[in-house]
Nucleic acid binder design. Sequence first.
DNA 1: ACGGCATATATGTACTGTGTATCTAAGTCA
DNA 2: TGACTTAGATACACAGTACATATATGCCGT
Lengths: 253, 253
Amino acid sequence: MSKKPRVSTAEGEGEFLASYDPSRFERFSVAVDVVLVAALEGDLSTLLIVRDEHPYKGQHALPGGFLKKDETLEEAATRVLRNKANLGGVYLEQLYTFGEPRRDPRTRVISVVYYALVDEARFRAAATGERPVHSGRIRVPWEGETGGPVKVVDEKGRALALAFDHADIVGMAVKRLRGKLDYAPVGFQLLGETFTLLALQRVHETVLGRPVNKDSFRRRMLASGQLEATGRAQSGVDHRPAELYRFARRSAV
Amino acid sequence: MSKKPRVSTAEGEGEFLASYDPSRFERFSVAVDVVLVAALEGDLSTLLIVRDEHPYKGQHALPGGFLKKDETLEEAATRVLRNKANLGGVYLEQLYTFGEPRRDPRTRVISVVYYALVDEARFRAAATGERPVHSGRIRVPWEGETGGPVKVVDEKGRALALAFDHADIVGMAVKRLRGKLDYAPVGFQLLGETFTLLALQRVHETVLGRPVNKDSFRRRMLASGQLEATGRAQSGVDHRPAELYRFARRSAV
DNA sequence: ACGGCATATATGTACTGTGTATCTAAGTCA
DNA sequence: TGACTTAGATACACAGTACATATATGCCGT
């Protein structure tokens, strides 16, 4: 292969190697949206905001905001969570970047999407704060193919038509969670400080979209060394209460 | 939670729900870079271009280009591959978006990175074309942790200092490949139409950064149903030739 | 107080995938 | 022709998991 760099005027080369002149290139609005996910009563839920302006006025949308000049993408996502959901210090990870030219009818917007995982208590605190935030339940198609179309419904089970391509985004978030379930402590992020094994199982089932064998799941989790028994038991149930576990941050192995 | 949308003038709400006025928000240069990966002689390689302008003049960089007004992100990645490597119809997938404010010293650039997987023949065709493209060998730290620092070296083994944050980007591409190896036909994309089981094993070992058991690997691959024997054998080797296999696109199960 | 009920938790067994070792097959080359 | 090298097949041990069964423990109605 050619070792000596040479000046090329070919179209493909020029645009990248030539002197940079900002005015020569298009500039784009960059937004950062966040899929805030929690496990509520066995279902995955995501935080939504009702739009009060066109387009998609009155419809639900993921919380988001436009990127500012000197902040990183992750800082923008953090800011969105802080401003829209009054949440800080949550697990945050970049999901995907959506850039279809007409995904926003007003102007072209490149949206870098992050997803965040919180436990039920934090989610409910956000969803009942001063701001008009809503909770959308994610209905994952049972036994569906990976990345199949998820539906988002309200508390009464009515389907919510999400603004923009946000339904696709939620679907991709679930798909990502599904892939990480095996090797990352996803379930723990979605549950509170303590939880029962059945609760953890429900979360896994919801993310996977299929039932898992109870006994196998229990043994696998206990054998993983990631769980730590608290010695305390569930209360307020009309049957034998289950042991409460917590996530073992760093066991001495 | 509050059901009735109400107008909010709080800072966090306003920026997203208020009437959209493009002039109110920053606009950013958006680039699309491509990590073109192939398996060459057991090593992963990636396509690089030598920069002939500041910054990082004379250093190697991933092929890339700025996003145009009406093309999708994927179309931009396709265009980059066509222009810089004269390649078309390759497997392409979005990797990650890098947006650190000072990653490009000239101006802020949001870079949406795609990775592409090609077989050795296509990679060599690109790397020996008219354009001054180069091949960088990816040295994955053996037995290293996921996402550990990879090094990129030239044909003589000399370390290449990549421009911008492109070394990080290559590292993330390898990390992604590693994660997909178990459930996606990554190896097949990196090999040609036909290949021996040992060649497939070498690719897996390179991506994983560790040796895999030969017999187990063979059995696992044959049991997966993704392989199809061609009936033909390797030639030009000084030992017993191995059977050539091909990827079974859609087996009748 | 007691027994039914529902769920938690423990134990046992079969199956499957993988690691490892050993043996045989099929080429090249001196 | 026989040594050498790698391909490919077979056998066995082991671990993880699915599945089945048995026991424990709390609540609740009578």
